[in-house]
C-alpha cells in the first residue's frame, strides 16, 4: 500500500517551490541539465573524469565539479567541453537532444545537389534513462523526398 503526504496541499515545501522565482529556477535547472548531459556523453564515450579532464586540459577535480549539478558554467568551459566531445555547446544544454550514432552515410552528388542518407540509432536521454529508438532519417538538402 502506497501512502502519500499530499493530502495537505499547503505544505511548506510545496509553498516554497511555488514561490521560487523563474530566474532562479532556470539558473539551477540549466546547471543541472548541463551536468546531466555531460554525464550522459561521458558514459556514451566511456570517458572517466580523468580522461575528460585530459581532453579538455583540466584536473579531474574540475570535471567532478562540473558533474555536481551546482557548477555555474562559463561559455569558455562549454566551448572547450563541446570541442572535446565533438558536439556543439547547445547540445550540452538540453536533455532532449538525441545522441545520434551514424552507422553509415551515403553521399550522392546528383546535378550538383548533395543528398545525405543516414541510418541512425538514436539514444534519447530525456528523463534520465536511456531509451533507444531506431529510425531512419534523411537530411534534406534540396529536392529529395524521404520514404
Amino acid at each position: 500500500m502506497m501512502t502519500t503526504t499530499d493530502n495537505n496541499q499547503s505544505t511548506a515545501g510545496r509553498r516554497i517551490l511555488r514561490n521560487v522565482s523563474s530566474a532562479k529556477r532556470n539558473r539551477i535547472e540549466l546547471n543541472m541539465t548541463i551536468s546531466a548531459r555531460l554525464d550522459d556523453l561521458m558514459k556514451k564515450f566511456d570517458l572517466s573524469t580523468e580522461q575528460l579532464g585530459t581532453k579538455v586540459g583540466v584536473e579531474f577535480e574540475t570535471v567532478d565539479c562540473w558533474l555536481s549539478g551546482t557548477h555555474v558554467f562559463t561559455t569558455d568551459e562549454l566551448s572547450d567541453i563541446a570541442t572535446a566531445l565533438k558536439c556543439s555547446p547547445k547540445d550540452l544544454m538540453s536533455l532532449a537532444t538525441p545522441i545520434v550514432e551514424l552507422s553509415w552515410i551515403v553521399h550522392n552528388v546528383v546535378n550538383q545537389e548533395v543528398l545525405f542518407l543516414a541510418s541512425s540509432q538514436s539514444r534519447s536521454t530525456e528523463g534520465g534513462s536511456d531509451q533507444v529508438k531506431t529510425y531512419s532519417t534523411t537530411k534534406l538538402i534540396s529536392g529529395y523526398q524521404p520514404n
Binding site: 541539465t33 567532478d64 558533474l67 528523463g127
Partner: peptide, 21 residues
C-alpha cells in the same frame, strides 16, 4: 538554500538523479 534544494529535487524527480549531484 531551501529553495535551491527544492528546485533540485523537482528536477531530479523529472530528469533523474546523476552521480555527481
Amino acid at each position: 538554500e531551501v529553495e535551491s534544494l527544492l528546485v533540485q529535487l523537482e528536477f531530479i524527480g523529472r530528469n533523474g538523479l546523476r552521480r555527481g549531484y
